[in-house]
């Protein structure tokens, strides 16, 4: 009789463990998906801002049509990209194209006095940061999810149930790893 109870206890324990681990993995998977959607929201925001920026600076930067076209093309590719890896690569291209545009804009002092452009630039900077932060959150959650999937004995549950595929990281580009420089200069008093 005791053996039956012990076996029953082990079965209940295993069952409980399976339920808890399954629910944990589902919860983590949903967090990862939600974080991915958050990146999407920010990317959409960037895609919407770019046409405004291009049309505003077009007049003042007529000799830089090539740079502007690269931004427009990169945006078009990013909008139509499907899948995590393709999307990440297209968005990285767009980031680079925008970086070049901002660098070229430095050569046009008139643009700095234009309030609309300054506002658009601030909005784009903010959007870039939000994308970066959303990506950071996504990668943190993916790392957590992957760890939970791969550790023993959770990997047994993962192999038993379908739907717990490995999520991909949103890869950072090399240019993002530049060494920062210190600046503590207070604005003139």
């Amino acid at each position: 009789m005791i053996v039956v109870w012990i076996i029953l206890g082990i079965v209940v324990f295993v069952l409980l463990w399976v339920i808890i681990t399954f629910n944990l993995l589902v919860s983590l998977r949903n967090q990862v998906h939600n974080a991915w959607k958050q990146i999407d929201v920010q990317l959409k925001r960037r895609h919407d801002l770019i046409p405004n920026l291009v049309s505003t600076v077009k007049g003042a930067m007529e000799f830089e049509q090539d740079t502007l076209e690269k931004v427009i093309n990169a945006r078009a590719k990013a909008v139509s990209a499907v899948g995590t890896q393709k999307k990440a690569s297209a968005e990285n291209m767009l980031t680079q194209a925008l970086g070049r545009l901002f660098a070229v804009m430095e050569n046009y002092p008139d643009l700095k006095t234009n309030q609309n452009i300054m506002q658009l630039q601030e909005e784009l900077t903010s959007t870039e940061n939000r994308i970066g932060f959303a990506r950071q959150l996504y990668n943190d959650l993916v790392a957590n999810y992957r760890t939970k999937q791969e550790i023993f004995p959770n990997n047994v549950i993962v192999s038993l149930f379908a739907g717990f595929q490995k999520e991909e990281y949103f890869e950072a580009e090399e240019s993002d790893r530049a060494v920062p420089k210190a600046d503590i200069s207070i604005r003139p008093e």
Binding site: Q119, E122, R130
Partner: peptide
């Protein structure tokens, strides 16, 4: 301009904290 920047930064912090 600077307050708008602050509001944007606040939104960025909301994003990073999920």
């Amino acid at each position: 301009g600077i307050h708008k920047q602050l509001m944007n930064i606040m939104e960025e912090i909301h994003v990073v904290t999920g």
